[in-house]
Amino acid sequence: MGGWAIAVHGGAGVDPNLPTHRQEEAKQLLARCLNLGISALRSSLSAIDVVELVVRELETDPLFNSGRGSALTENGTVEMEASIMDGPKRRCGAVSGISTVKNPVSLARLVMEKSPHSYLAFSGAEEFARKQGVEMVDNEYFITKDNKGMLKLAKEANSIVFDYRIPILGTCSAGAGAIESALQMNGLPIIIYAPETVGCVVVDSQGRCAAATSTGGLMNKMMGRIGDSPLIGAGTYACDLCGVSCTGEGEAIIRGTLAREVAAVMEYKGLGLQDAVDFVVKERLDEGKAGIIAVSNKGEVACGFNTTGMFRGCASEDGYMEVGIWDQD
């Protein structure tokens, strides 16, 4: 029986040409969030408190695609989503279509604890947020200059985050042709795709697991689009055995019920945590691209991805700590 363990991610699918200073910035943020979580675990905060705390921090920093720094919809607005799940009783909360709540993950937790439901969205979720008195900000707060530029690029490339496995009429254009050989994520050239979902999984020293995921979704997404992050079993899942947070191509993650799958192969096939993560990345994604972080109730931590790189960090009570982006890190 191990002690605590924690993993964080800032998305999977990284531009291999990302400038070194940007890579360093990302690693520093991951390390800072990891340390925040470690201190909280050392002060005996419960797993569910720690995942919320860490994801709040990731949301508040504009670097990754959640909270401030969220990707923009086709209309240039922000529609954020988040979910949180507590392993011991499998209680969960999720929100979608959030445009003025500073920390969507905390609203997801309030849905779990203060509403009779598991999932609230759009105006109903915003109304609930106001009633609960959470911190609200203007939609402009979330919109960064960088992301406005990214949206413009995405529109010019006419690569409207189309899942490239699904043929859509009219996706081929001269603009798209120019970048067809480039690395893509969600049909977007990876230099435009850059912004990423965030997530955290934790097992505390009492063996309780929890998971939380938060995102602004896809750049140039349709209004109203819901991705994998708020979907229990897809982007986020926790039970007695493990806590899991996924990131990558939302549609592939939903089809593969990816987060639940890690737990299911542990529960029904008897696989260990890392084997479960590897199996799911290899067998359950079809041709999709994604990354997973996971912890087990034994204090193990695991990570897996089939993308070019994943912003990630993990640590465990025995002193192991790692922050990385690429395969070899």
Partner: peptide, 15 residues
């Protein structure tokens, strides 16, 4: 007909 799986509320009505 969309690149997505799931649309909600006003966006779904518009679609």
């Amino acid at each position: 007909k969309t690149p997505h799986i799931y649309l909600g509320f006003d966006g779904a009505e518009a679609f």
